[in-house]
Simulated scan of single mutants.
Amino acid sequence: MIVPTIRGEGVRLRGFAQRDVDDLLAGYGDPAVRRFLPPLPVPFTRAQAESYVSDVAPGMFTHGGGLYAIADPATDRLLGGVGLDKVVPNRGQAELGYWVGPWARGHGVATAAVRALTEHSFHTGMERIELLTHRENVPSQRVALANGFRPEGLRRGVLPNRDGGRDDLLAYARLAGDEPGPVTRLLPDLPGGELTDGVVTLRPLVPGDVDFYTELHSLADVVATTVPPVAPSREEMRRRCDWAQSHWLAGDRADLIIVDTATGTPAGEIGLYYQEARTGQAMIGYSMMPAWRGRGYPTRAAQLVSLWAFAETGIARLIAGALPTNLGSQRVLEKAGFKREAYLRSRLPGNDGRRNDDVQFALLAEDLLRDGARLDG
């Protein structure tokens, strides 16, 4: 059959051809593509690539979906693939998927291709398009949000993996009547990718931080302030690091590493937890390595996060808590401008079935303006 050509911004969607076989092999051999496409055979052979081009891709169109080659409009070189699958005609619904070769990443190819196919599909009668992605696949989530796909939750065990288990996937969807995007995020990216006052630098938590993060959260005094106060496993810390950027995109939390600016050494962590978006209230929490305590770093970090939150998000009120015995943490909050507001009895779970009291502090935007920033540690 003749595959229609769809033109997008900087891309052209067309049918696959034999001239694409070498690039298809290279793309499907890329570790990043294989990681998030478990059904893909490993190794992916030339014979399979040729069959994909001649039979598999064209056959998708006979079932109401379609697989398109993403091509460079100037050279016609294959950049990736995008398609619709799992079409339910009586519901006007389908699932969209895509991949981009490593030679074409970082240039907006996926965003442009998804936008072009999505708009084409709506114009030809589709009413709802879903996009499913692994939580670790942050670039895919960014593509979804950029194209107006709204997060709809988690699909548990929806995709068989290569280990014999099943993977959970995040679900995004866009309806024909939805705005084309981008979706407004509750927690935007940091300006320039980090926050700094010249003494400390805050950068997002990433998968490579797992060793540092595990060590920090295994310290006895850090565990004592964890809710519940139980030392996490390394696997839990790995998931926390792997999923941190996804949580940031979802707008429910922003996890940051506190870095000594002069040496680039990780010194601690601070998190912002946006659990009450409707009321504009978020919470912060922090931990420091023993060698970096007593230098005022958590105070500086708390102020940097607070200034960013009030300036760049809809957060109107920040709260934080400390155990009554944790006078050091209370001093950090007071120096960062937080005001003590309450003493909550038995608020937090403790060890051996006991409950711990919690001293609550809060910071408003006007507090920073009125009192000024005190960064004396």
Rank of each mutant, 00 (worst) to 15 (best):
P4V: 11
R7E: 15
R7Q: 13
R7I: 07
G8S: 00
G8H: 00
G10W: 02
V11S: 03
F16W: 09
F16P: 07
Q18C: 02
L24W: 04
D30I: 05
D30S: 10
D30Q: 12
D30E: 13
P31Y: 06
P31H: 04
R35A: 15
F36V: 13
P39Q: 02
L40Y: 05
P41S: 03
V42A: 03
Y52A: 00
S54Y: 01
S54Q: 12
A57M: 05
P58C: 13
F61Y: 14
G64D: 13
D72P: 03
R77M: 00
R77C: 00
L84Y: 05
N90W: 04
Q93F: 15
A94Y: 08
A94S: 07
A94W: 01
G97K: 07
A104V: 00
A112T: 09
L117V: 05
H120W: 15
H120S: 07
T124D: 04
M126W: 07
R135H: 14
N137H: 11
P139E: 09
V143Y: 10
A144E: 08
L145Q: 06
N147Y: 02
G148M: 00
E152K: 10
R156T: 07
R156W: 00
R162F: 00
Y172G: 05
A173H: 08
A173D: 04
L175G: 02
A176I: 00
A176H: 08
P180C: 06
G181T: 01
P182W: 10
L186C: 03
V200H: 09
V206R: 15
D211C: 08
L216T: 08
A220D: 15
V223A: 07
A224M: 12
T226D: 14
V227P: 01
V230H: 09
P232L: 03
P232K: 04
E235I: 00
R239V: 13
D242T: 04
W243V: 12
Q245L: 10
A254S: 14
L256I: 01
T261F: 04
A262E: 09
P266K: 00
P266M: 00
I270K: 06
L272D: 06
L272V: 14
A277V: 09
R278E: 13
R278W: 09
M283D: 14
M283W: 11
I284D: 12
Y286R: 14
M288H: 11
M289P: 07
M289H: 14
T299E: 06
A301M: 05
L304V: 09
L304H: 05
S306N: 03
L307T: 03
L307M: 12
A311E: 10
E312Q: 14
E312Y: 14
G314R: 07
I315F: 02
R317M: 09
L323W: 03
P324I: 06
T325R: 15
L327E: 12
S329Y: 11
S329D: 15
Q330T: 08
G337I: 01
F338C: 14
R340N: 12
R340T: 07
N351S: 13
D358Y: 11
V359H: 01
L363H: 14
E366F: 03
L368W: 11
R370S: 06
D371F: 07
G372Q: 01
G372I: 04
R374T: 02
L375D: 06
G377W: 02
